[in-house]
């Protein structure tokens, strides 16, 4: 190591020694962290509503009865079609939930509330309920990461990680593969 590097090392450590004492870091971090969670949950909820609406709307519209033959004078019709014409069935975890048109819901987010140490109720981490295609029933995943995308077969899930990495995990949260997206999409590790 050169003398310049030694001098840099000393300078950096002198600078770090001047750091202020840590006060209330945990309390402030909790407050800001809960805000981040709330924003994330709100964004997820909005996304879920949009996805369900986008999925269900075309089927609901297609199921509507064909319009009556036009007679003269033409009867007044509502310009805005209503999605309520194709009412969705109640959700049950015992059978695959089928949307009008045959699409099956493979995963749902589940909001839970938890009790803090001081007794207050706060939003917890989002829970996930996924369809187990082998049994045809829904089950709670042992995965809490909010940035979760299910594979088409419902067996594995993509989790966005740090530094451009994507982890592929199963329903138990065990990592099955890691994809490094830094620079290119060619680097891949895990079972083929």
């Amino acid at each position: 190591m050169s003398e310049l590097e030694n001098a840099v090392r000393t300078t950096v450590r002198d600078l770090a020694d001047e750091a202020p004492p840590a006060h209330d870091l945990a309390a402030v971090a909790r407050t800001r962290g809960r805000r981040i969670r709330r924003h994330r949950h709100a964004a997820l909820g909005a996304l879920a509503v949009v996805l369900v609406a986008a999925t269900a709307m075309p089927y609901a519209l297609l199921r509507r009865d064909p319009p009556a033959p036009v007679v003269d004078p033409a009867p007044a019709v509502s310009p805005v079609p209503s999605a309520s014409a194709g009412a969705l069935p109640d959700f049950s975890g015992d059978t695959p939930y089928q949307l009008p048109g045959g699409a099956v819901v493979t995963m749902l987010t589940k909001q839970v509330e938890v009790q803090e140490a001081d007794g207050t109720i706060a939003p917890g981490d989002p829970g996930y309920v996924a369809l187990d295609r082998t049994t045809g029933t829904y089950r709670q995943l042992d995965v809490t990461d909010p940035d979760l995308v299910p594979a088409p077969d419902g067996r594995t899930f993509a989790v966005m990680g740090l530094s451009g990495r994507v982890d592929v995990v199963d329903a138990s949260g065990d990592r099955k593969a890691r994809i490094d997206t830094r620079g290119s999409f060619t680097a891949y590790s895990g079972p083929q």
Binding site: A19, P20, A22, L25, A26, V28, A29, R30, T31, R32, G33, R34, R35, I36, R37, R40, D125, T144, D145, P146
Partner: peptide
């Protein structure tokens, strides 16, 4: 420095279970 650490800890808290 305090703001940087608190921000990083807040992000860690939001994903703490993972």
């Amino acid at each position: 420095a305090e703001d940087l650490v608190q921000g990083a800890l807040a992000k860690a808290y939001a994903r703490w279970p993972r």
